[in-house]
């Protein structure tokens, strides 16, 4: 629970950072309405760009499904945006297996988004296994943070 909270706070901070960046650079052409690229990224941070998984699991938990539903709604209002789902694992597994598990997690997120109405051609996946952790210490809290599926803007959101 604690880590989820940290995650939410982190997401909020990131969102704030992005919003700031947007106001710095976005004063020009693309306007301030909801179709802007920064708008998608910023709003993605607001609804939550990631879900977390239990140890050695790749089923999206109910609270994760709520986040993904919100992501799907967001994607519905940005029809040109494509996303890439990153699957990540904690360090408590072997490298090869974690690559496969990360792929499972990314695909679980993808299938959830599809089930909420997102065109599957707008979604790609990539697994980083245990090689791109977000948290670098060796404890359960850190591992829970790292077992994640992250939605990132891949195209149509910035250029």
């Amino acid at each position: 629970m604690k880590f989820k909270f940290i995650g939410v706070v982190a997401a909020a901070l990131l969102a704030a950072a992005c919003a700031t960046k947007n106001t710095d650079t976005g004063g020009g052409s693309s306007g301030g309405d909801s179709t802007g690229a920064g708008g998608f990224v910023g709003q993605l941070q607001q609804v939550g760009d990631r879900v977390w998984f239990d140890l050695d699991r790749y089923d999206v938990k109910p609270e994760g499904m709520a986040v993904l539903q919100a992501q799907a709604q967001l994607l519905a209002s940005y029809p040109d945006v494509t996303v890439r789902i990153e699957g990540h694992c904690d360090e408590r597994g072997t490298r090869e297996y974690n690559l496969a598990l990360g792929d499972r997690r990314a695909n679980a997120v993808k299938e959830a988004l599809v089930s909420f109405g997102v065109d599957r051609n707008r979604i790609s996946t990539i697994s980083y296994g245990k090689d791109r952790p977000e948290c670098g210490t060796s404890d359960e809290g850190c591992w829970a943070t790292n077992r994640r599926g992250v939605t990132t803007a891949a195209g149509g959101a910035g250029s």
Binding site: Y58, L99, A100, D103, R104, A106
Partner: peptide, 24 residues
């Protein structure tokens, strides 16, 4: 995604995993 590669003993083949749609 392809990963976990290794040569065959004769060096002519590479055996590896491919992950697709959550299955490897």
């Amino acid at each position: 995604m392809t990963f976990a590669p290794r040569f065959s003993p004769d060096g002519n083949n590479v055996v590896m995993s491919m992950a697709r749609d959550g299955n490897s």
